[in-house]
Each structure stands twice: as C-alpha cells, then as structure tokens.
Amino acid sequence: MSSLPDTTARHAPENIAILLREPFRRMTEQTIARLAERGHPQVRYAHGNVFQFLDDAGTRVSVLAERAGMTKQSMAQLVEHLETHGYVERVSDPADGRAKLVRTTARGREVFAVVREFIAETEALIEARLGADKLARLRALLTELDAAL
C-alpha cells in the first residue's frame, strides 16, 4: 500500500521532491524501528531535529531551533523529552554562564552508534542493489543538486 495520497497528479511523473523524500522517509522509519529494537523506543522521528544538529561540545536550544528551522519553543519540547529519557543533558555554557548547552549523554551516544550502524548496513544494501558505480554517481548527483539549490 502506498503512503502517497490518491490525487489526480498521481498519474503524472513524480516530481523530484517526492523522489528524494520517499527513500529518506523510509530510511528514517527503519532507523526509528531499529532504535526501538535496540532499547530506544522513546526516540521518534522529530527527535532527529535535535540529534542531527548537536555539536559535539553542546549546542544552545536557540541554535538547534535555527538549524532545524523550527521555533525555540518546539525545540525546547523535543530537548525536554530527550532529557527526561536520559539522551541529552543541559549544562552551563562556558562562554556564558547564564546560557545552557544541550549535549548528549552516554545514552544519547548509543543512539548515534545505532544510527551509524544502520546507515552503514543500508548503504551496503543500496550498493548491492545498484552497484558501486551507480551509488557513486548517485552521491555525486545529490551533491551537485544540493550545491545547485
């Protein structure tokens, strides 16, 4: 069953945004499922907005929100959830004692390890299906597309 809506445009060739979105969405769903299998069921799709924009030394909520393109309040809710479940902690910013940095805990670093493992497996699967040359070309084309946009 398709997750795409049944619309009159469904019979036209897919636009490039959907062709990019759908594999990403499927990979993300599989990543979340893997995290749950590995003992991290509290991590959901939206929490990627925290994890993917964290600096190793920690990042202010306002910076995370800006990087993710969301409000500071929404980001603060995501951080609070992850903090409650032990994935991140808030610590004083050494550059400004009034500010707090969000940084990963050991449990949060487990999430990164699971995701890195899953991505390596997924890329190996893609290479097995497409071949090394096509995968290299896909990477080059996506890099070129990103630069063009």
Rank of each mutant, 00 (worst) to 15 (best):
R103L: 11
L145V: 01
N15H: 13
L141M: 10
F24N: 11
V111S: 05
H40D: 03
S62D: 07
V43H: 04
L145W: 03
R34Y: 06
L125R: 14
V88P: 07
Y45F: 15
V61D: 03
L130K: 05
D93F: 09
A128K: 15
R129K: 14
T122C: 01
R139V: 02
Q42T: 14
E14C: 01
P41L: 11
R67W: 09
E121N: 07
T7R: 00
L101W: 05
S74E: 12
R44D: 10
L35G: 02
Q77E: 09
Q52C: 11
A9K: 04
H81G: 07
A12F: 10
P13D: 02
E66K: 13
M1L: 09
I32N: 10
L78T: 08
H81D: 14
R60N: 10
D93Y: 08
R10C: 08
A33M: 06
R90P: 02
D6F: 03
L125H: 13
R107K: 15
E123A: 01
D93T: 11
Q73S: 15
S74G: 14
K100N: 02
A124E: 11
L141D: 12
R107F: 12
A12R: 10
E22Y: 02
T31Q: 06
L145P: 01
D146P: 00
R116H: 04
T59F: 06
D55P: 12
S74I: 05
E144N: 02
V61I: 15
F51I: 11
D133E: 15
